[in-house]
Design a protein around this nucleic acid. Structure first.
Lengths: 245, 245
DNA sequence: CGACGTGTTGATCTCTCTCAATTAGAGTGG
DNA sequence: CCACTCTAATTGAGAGAGATCAACACGTCG
């Protein structure tokens, strides 16, 4: 149960704080208040909660979500070790989304106003935080593209590949033997804006086509090329550059 | 055609850079390279473009979008005067979304690496940029909630209210006599992940119900309460606080 | 052993899409 | 001033992807 010193923080692996000096790390360490351990299916903070603060996810999987009053839930993005949690909350003082765990998880809890202190500490640190934020933004953008414009199969293709890549990046074998996959079909349904039943049927179909396999809590991609094609992850609809200035 | 000095920049009205000192503003001015004027329906930069830089939108409406190779387009968010454009691009060197105008628009073009220089200039500035970024994030989150979990009428209720509020905030009468609304049904369809035909029918229905009116390029909300209820914008599904620590 | 969570599958149902056609207004050229 | 064109809005009809409803299988756990 010993706490993780900041110089071993997974954040340092994901190219953020990567360039931090020893002194930087010491400073960050000084803002770290304690660790918070949650079990699977627990809530780190709710939507609308006012006292949420800044965290990093040290171990385990989690997700950001929003719900409607009729109970429907949208998963906004999945969170992996190294992800920063609660930047919005530190800024607006009230959260407009919640955070829940998928597995047992360890969060590093920063002291109040840590975000501001990090900015004050060095421009690099502030810039790195923005980097993480922009990355998160980009993933939500892609989620919106999926839910808005892709059909069921295409959504799964895009989701499976993204999750596989993110999870694989954290494993030493890079996912060669499959990646851990603690996500239920209900979670995928909530992330893709689909019903549970249709989620099941679509997933089944892709499995029959030999595109992937989910087994024993692990995800295997058996035909990445086909999945990438299905999810439109090559061309991406990008138009040739035409600089205007 | 004279250029706008930074101390009159609309960014200052939207509570960002609000607390900037005279010296801060001078510094920002020094990073401003020039202004770029586009007409309606032009592209500021494309998806995948590598040389995009940092802008602010000074005048007019615009939007962020992504497209699939089959041509389907998802509008990620609408942009209003004061919005920062291109933070992602400055960080990752390649854009994963495009920006297009809805009206004639004026962008303020910053010099290359402006973002980094802003961070270096002062922690406040960096923090303000993050504030804007978090706000943008929050809007995309909400868009994803809509497209994933709300039905057609609910999506429009949420969208119309959001656009009305944002546009109204920029008008002196706060939208009392309706707000300018340069958005076609196709744009709304692309923002909400719906077909053009169903967009038209749903909009028509809400108009018949007396909820709103779009006329002569202006949007009027005739029954904000009903719209807010329909869009679930009160309760928001927020669960009572339960601090875990 | 029964309760529960998760996955699976079949049978309807419906919301939304696609196809098709029409109207209205703005802009253009003769 | 009038055809011609183009874009945006509109409306009807049929089709379909995905939702909802209903069971059942299977493993875990108290």
């Amino acid at each position: 149960m010993s706490e993780v010193p900041c110089n071993q923080c997974p954040l340092r692996r994901t190219s953020v704080f990567l360039d931090g000096t020893v002194e930087d790390v010491k400073f960050i360490q000084s803002l770290k208040q304690r660790e918070l351990r949650l079990r699977a299916d627990e809530i780190l903070f709710f939507e609308g909660q006012k006292d949420a603060r800044l965290f990093t996810l040290l171990e385990g999987w989690a997700f950001r979500f929003k719900t409607l009053s009729n109970g429907r839930r949208q998963i906004l993005n999945f969170l992996f070790p190294g992800d920063l949690v609660g930047v919005q909350q530190e800024i607006v003082a009230e959260s407009d989304h919640g955070i829940a765990t998928l597995t047992n998880a360890v969060f590093c809890v920063f002291q109040r106003n840590a975000l501001w202190k990090l900015y004050q500490h060095s421009p690099e640190t502030g810039f790195n935080i923005t980097w993480l934020t922009a990355r998160e933004q980009s993933m939500v953008d892609d989620g919106l593209l999926s839910v808005g414009q892709r059909n069921a199969q295409e959504r799964f293709a895009a989701l499976l590949i993204r999750l596989f890549r993110r999870a694989g990046a954290l494993q030493s074998d890079n996912g060669a033997a499959g990646v851990k996959f603690p996500i239920t079909q209900q979670h995928m349904a909530d992330a893709l804006g689909m019903s549970l039943v249709h989620t099941n049927k679509t997933l089944r179909k892709l499995e029959q086509l030999g595109f992937h396999r989910i087994e024993d809590g692990h995800l295997h991609l058996l035909n990445v090329k086909a999945l990438a094609h299905l999810g439109d992850l090559f061309g991406d609809g990008r138009v040739p550059q035409r600089p205007l200035f």
